[in-house]
Each structure stands twice: as structure tokens, then as C-alpha cells.
Amino acid sequence: MSPPVTTYWRLAGMSYLQYVNKAASTMRGALKEPAKTKAMAQEAFQYNTSVWSGGVQGAKTPVTSMGAAGK
């Protein structure tokens, strides 16, 4: 049986989202102003985490790694 048809980026362990975000990010890097600033603003994001106890939300701490956030 022939091996399944796939892409080089999937073989290297990237998911489709990782691939397409990399492509979009590369594209944003090669834009002229003011399109660049506008596009780059779409790329930045961050997550906060907080623990609720007794119906009260605890302090928010920024998540630095998605791997660590799941623990």
C-alpha cells in the first residue's frame, strides 16, 4: 500500500492552524505601512487565567505557555 498523501509541514509535526498562521504571519511581515501595523495588530493575543473560589474570581495571571496552562 502506498503511504498516505500528505504535506511536508504535516510530516514535520505542524497542524493546519500552525501552518496557516505561519503563512499569514510571514505575509504580514512583508507589507507596506499602514497595512502592516493594522495586520500585525491582528496577530497579537494573550490568555489570562484565574481561579474562582466561593463565587469570587481570583487574580488574573497571564498564560505564558499553553502547555503549562493545562496543568
Partner: peptide, 14 residues
């Protein structure tokens, strides 16, 4: 995920 008009592409940066 992203789309721009061709005029917004910087040839030097590419």
C-alpha cells in the same frame, strides 16, 4: 486568515 491588496505588498521586504 489574512488577505491584502497587491499594492500593500513591499517588494524589498519580500
Amino acid at each position: 486568515p489574512e488577505a491584502v491588496k497587491l499594492d500593500d505588498i513591499d517588494a524589498t521586504a519580500v
